[in-house]
């Protein structure tokens, strides 16, 4: 049975709901040799700032139970070098290109969005207001409903593209932030970014990460992500993109059933660089086996 897997994310049309998550898929080209990249619905590139950023000193990562901590610190080439050096490759491939952006100030978010208006080959923006590892671009904007709304408004008024706002789980109530960015004009929200955590070397009595704390990702966070996605789906009427610990098609299907319009795969790519392609296959098989002709007949069908 031929199944229909296309979804619409606030004006961004995807041929299937499988996206890569920012910071785990480089600028796409890193994966070109490892999977058939054209199987994917969308690629979300590494977060971009106005100027290049060198990131945090090492050690930057540490394995933890069923997951990993990272404090890469948003190392990136900057928006200008991205357009010049990275975007040409992305134009040659089929998946939608979502550019993740972050700034030091509300104005800077708007400025980056404006620069990307002129860049041919960008299909949507994902606004990072949730990185736990840096002061700017980060959680300061994402944990305050008013600031989150202000950043969203600045990007929306500067950009011609659909705007997805990526939310942090490191807040008391994620639905409050989601509602705030919805009112400010966000076309969709993606959640969750990493959970702040830490790990200690007991022999040396030092943190395993130079940054002391880092963002936890991987299967360890999936139940938390799923719960937050489910709550947010009920709280807003814009599409929700589910992110957090998805390793397989069955993980992805849980998020879709909970109401996520699309999903992002991140850390799983480090374990298996072709993980996203397997998830696409697995979703199609599931739909087919369950007699569902259209993925939209599955999304948000959780029975409670």
């Amino acid at each position: 049975m031929k199944v229909q897997t296309g979804v619409d994310i606030g004006g961004l049309t995807l041929k299937n709901p499988v996206m890569t998550s920012s910071g785990t898929f480089g600028y796409g080209e890193e994966y070109a040799d490892y999977l058939d990249i054209n199987r994917l619905g969308a690629i979300v590139v590494k977060g971009l700032s106005l100027k290049p950023k060198e990131g945090n000193p090492p050690p930057r990562i540490m394995e933890t139970a069923s997951g990993m901590l990272n404090a890469v610190g948003l190392q990136n080439v900057g928006v200008e070098a991205f357009i010049e050096k990275k975007l040409p490759y992305l134009r040659t491939i089929d998946p939608a290109v979502v550019v993740n952006i972050f700034g030091n100030s509300v104005e800077e978010y708007g400025r980056i969005a404006e620069i990307l208006n002129d860049a041919n080959g960008v299909d949507a923006l994902e606004v990072n207001i949730s990185c736990p590892n840096v002061k700017e671009g980060g959680v300061a904007f994402g944990s305050d409903p008013l600031l989150a709304g202000e950043v969203t408004r600045a990007v929306k008024s500067a950009s011609r593209l659909p705007v997805i706002v990526k939310l942090t789980p490191n807040v008391t109530d994620i639905t409050e932030i989601a509602r705030s960015v919805e009112i400010a004009g966000a076309d969709a929200v993606s959640l969750i970014n990493t959970l702040t955590g830490m790990s200690i070397d007991i022999e040396k009595r030092i943190p395993h990460l130079k940054n002391i704390t880092g963002g936890l990702s991987g299967p360890a966070i999936k139940p938390v992500a799923l719960r937050m996605v489910w709550e947010t789906v009920k709280a807003v009427s814009i599409p929700v993109i589910g992110v957090g610990g998805i390793m397989s098609a069955s993980d992805a299907l849980e998020f879709l059933i909970a109401g996520a319009r699309a999903i992002q795969i991140g850390t799983a790519h480090f374990i298996d660089p072709s993980a996203a392609a397997h998830v696409v296959d697995g979703i199609e098989e599931y739909l087919s086996e369950h007699g569902l002709e259209d993925i939209r007949d599955l999304i948000g069908t959780l029975r409670t």
């Binding site: 785990t24 990562i61 990993m68 990272n70 480090f270 660089p273």
Partner: peptide, 17 residues
């Protein structure tokens, strides 16, 4: 040697100055 997650340049975990 540095801790790394992917080994092919995507995770940016294995930075050296």
């Amino acid at each position: 040697e540095e801790r790394m997650a992917c080994g092919f340049g995507a995770c940016l975990g294995c930075a050296v100055r």
